[in-house]
Design a protein around this nucleic acid. Structure first.
Lengths: 204, 204
DNA sequence: CTGTTTACAATCGCTGTTGTATGTAACAGC
DNA sequence: GCTGTTACATACAACAGCGATTGTAAACAG
């Protein structure tokens, strides 16, 4: 019984939602396409119609929340010259706080960080994510390079970038493991704390 | 052809080693016990003789590197009153540097952080790990509580603990994703940086 | 109104994986 | 030298999951 285009889009969404729920509950590898289809009220035929395979399904799931790298780069380099580090801090704070406010984001990042295996048999999803992370660090480093002279003695732009990125990833990881942690103010204070350690003229 | 006890122990080790290699390459869920057995030069019978199932095998693999929580607590609370935060910092630095120096530790933590799914069907391994992490944070917080008065205004022991733990986890994650990063001095400088942001009287 | 395409459902064949049960040869103790 | 046990190998049964193919009714384009 063929449906209209809107109906088709609805089942597409339903499949994605079911995948999200089941991936979160049982892990990506431990969830079969049949289970997803059943949960969405369709058969595997529908899943294979909308998605090539599990890898692509997972990939499209991630793309629902992962902001495109270009957008990130633009955001970071847009306010050129002005107050690059303040923008950098705000981006980091937004990332964490955005996680707290958006439950879907929370679930999908939980899947990404705790419920899936990064192996090349999962297709381009893994590679793209790794590339994303590397670019993230590179952008950090670039921003710190601009203000090299303000860094405390012994602190290189590279070191600062690694530290800041580590903190972001770590907070993401801890947050998704055990959600109700802290609000915007506290997140901002954490990043201010690290930045104050990196630059002696940092003022929140 | 029955072997002597030492032989048996050798095949046990061989199975663990093969599991380590294959888990790292393909992920835990995507590795079958038959593949592990073949790689170790035995059959699945041997695997089932030494381990109840894949979950237990994974569990014993982790126990090869994860230091027992009691040991950690002792280490942190042992030098009571003296310089609790310095011990705390050294523990964090040791954790990261230890990773760089011990390749086995590196592989196993890579599996733990990037090649496995934390779901309850994996048995007690997941629970134990989560409990470990929580205790870790609790210990951090306890240490910071001792020196509450030295914390910068607005910084609570809880906040400090979350931040420090986040940084540790984040550096672990980044390191295992892309190993050749930095040496002991730089790691120490990173933690000193954060601690200096947390306490105004911190001196490396 | 009709042909084509869409959006699935149903079925099939195959392989991979798990758990268990049974066989078996050698070692260790007596 | 016999025996029970150990340390596996082999065999068996059952299922799950994938990918492909085929079927089909309804939507849509002309």
């Amino acid at each position: 019984m063929r449906r209209t285009k809107e109906d088709a889009e609805k089942t597409r969404i339903a499949i994605l939602d079911s995948a999200e729920r089941l991936f979160l509950e049982r892990g990506v590898a431990h969830t079969s396409l049949d289970q997803i289809a059943r949960d969405a009220g369709v058969t595997r035929g529908a899943v294979y119609w909308h998605f090539q395979n599990k890898g692509h399904l997972f990939h499209e799931l991630l793309d629902q929340v992962r902001l495109p790298p270009e957008q990130l780069a633009e955001r970071l380099c847009g306010a050129e010259d002005e107050q690059p580090l303040r923008v950098l801090r705000d981006v980091c704070v937004e990332a964490i706080v955005g996680l707290a406010e958006d439950e879907k984001k929370q679930r999908i990042f939980t899947i990404l960080l705790h419920r899936c295996e990064f192996t090349d048999e999962m297709g381009e999803a893994a590679e793209r994510h790794d590339a994303f992370v590397r670019q993230f660090i590179a952008l950090f480093e670039k921003q710190f390079t601009v203000v090299t002279s303000r860094l405390r003695p012994g602190v290189t732009p590279q070191l600062a970038a690694r530290a800041l990125h580590g903190l972001v990833i770590g907070l993401f990881t801890d947050w998704t493991r055990d959600p109700p942690q802290f609000g915007r103010e506290e997140v901002q204070r954490i990043f201010d704390t690290l930045l104050y350690g990196l630059l002696d003229d940092w003022r929140p």
